[in-house]
Design a binder for these strands. Structure first.
Length: 374
DNA sequence: AACACGGGGTT
DNA sequence: AACCCAGTGTT
């Protein structure tokens, strides 16, 4: 469960050396990242939430746009969820954006607009777990508290040659090595080491400031730590989407039916072209007509296929078939969605959408342009 | 403890 | 194609 006596002694014996070498390495190799320059607690918070399950290079531009539009916690709390989701579009794990927005309003309402400055206070906010609470506390507030993410877990598992370290053991190990004078720099350095040197498959041990402190390397197989569990096979689904068009007048641009997904669902709060999974034995048009009846209470005519989109989620893969459709009968109502609207292309661009539906919107734009040439 | 939750990068 | 993430919340 927790650290063994022998591991505890090993950590105590090499503490000063490990601290000094890691901090000195970090000073030389730290990347020039925007969130390292403006470290208000609010901005550290935004950066750390964006970095959950997401790589630095992906986050950088999102972070800059986000803090430009929402420079303060108050400005974020005052914004609409839709605008926050729009800035999050393409970043994934959208519950992070919903929780961040909810937490900002909570801080304004219950904490006088000031982010809590203790790990426990931070941990109580939505979207802040053990890792993020530790990261904000150490980086923004200088509190010597561990922040264990996947990188830190890997680094410490290798340092101690521990195949499957538990969270309490990891936190205790990191806590022993945090220098009281520089907890934030140490936290960042540990994560940066894992991200750039102590990589999962082929660690670059020759460049590592801890190479001669690493017990896994001593055993000759650093990449064998920590052990990984076998993955479950991921299923594949055929999914349909209806691009349902109507022309308010013969002269005007067409409008297309879009629906907002329920807030507690996957991709919650994002807009989509309605549709859904094809069941066994069902044709794609059959599936589409059934889904539109179930979700929106309308019968549709299914026309030509507009585009096909392949996409892989964490737990399944899909092939998404988008069809041009028209309304046959019924008025749309939200039977299984948050809201719906008939939107023109310009409005579609402004809606928060997942990557798959954004691709469909792109195909629609191309189709409409080719059609206007006729 | 197991699972759901996006998307992009690396090998 | 398989594997990896700068994790959190729910069950």
């Amino acid at each position: 469960m927790s650290l063994g006596a022998e591991q505890r002694a090993y950590l105590a014996q090499h503490r000063e050396e490990a601290q000094q070498r890691l901090l000195s390495w970090f000073e030389r190799h730290a990347r020039d990242l925007p969130w390292r320059r403006d470290r208000t607690p609010y901005r550290v918070w935004v950066a750390e939430v964006m970095l959950q399950q997401t790589q630095v290079d992906t986050v950088r531009d999102y972070y800059l746009h986000f803090v430009q539009r929402f420079p303060t916690l108050d400005s974020l709390a005052e914004a609409s969820l839709e605008e926050v989701l729009k800035l999050w579009e393409g970043l994934g794990y959208y519950s992070r954006a919903r929780a961040l927005h909810r937490a900002a309003r909570q801080v304004v309402r219950h904490h006088n607009g000031e982010l809590p400055n203790t790990p426990q206070g931070l941990r109580a906010l939505p979207g802040i777990g053990a890792y993020t609470a530790g990261a904000i506390a150490s980086i923004a507030f200088g509190i010597p508290t561990p922040a264990v993410d996947g990188n830190v877990r890997r680094v410490m598992a290798r340092t101690l040659a521990e195949p499957d370290p538990t969270p309490p053991a990891l936190e205790e190990a990191v806590r022993q090595w945090i220098p009281p004078a520089a907890p934030g720099a140490f936290t960042e350095a540990l994560m940066e080491l894992g991200a750039t040197i102590c990589s999962p498959r082929a660690p670059r041990c020759l460049l590592c400031p801890w190479h001669d402190l690493c017990r896994a390397r001593d055993l000759g197989e650093p990449e064998a730590f920590p052990v990984t569990k076998p993955r479950k096979a991921i299923p594949h689904y055929d999914v349909t989407a209806a691009v349902t068009l109507r022309w308010p007048s013969s002269e005007s641009a067409p409008e297309v039916l879009v629906a907002q997904r329920p807030l507690d669902a996957m991709l919650g709060g994002l807009w989509e072209f309605p549709g859904g999974k094809r069941e066994d034995g069902e044709t794609l048009p059959d599936a589409l007509r059934r889904e539109l009846m179930e979700e929106m209470g309308v019968a549709i005519n299914v026309g030509e296929q507009l585009t096909v989109v392949q996409h892989a989620y964490t737990h399944f893969r899909i092939t998404l078939y988008a069809f041009l459709c028209t309304l046959e009968s019924g008025e749309p109502t939200c039977l299984a969605c948050q809201a719906f609207q008939w939107a023109r292309l310009a409005q579609i661009h402004a809606l928060p959408m997942a990557v798959t539906d954004r691709r469909i919107a792109g195909a629609l734009e191309v189709w409409l342009e080719s059609r206007s040439d006729l």
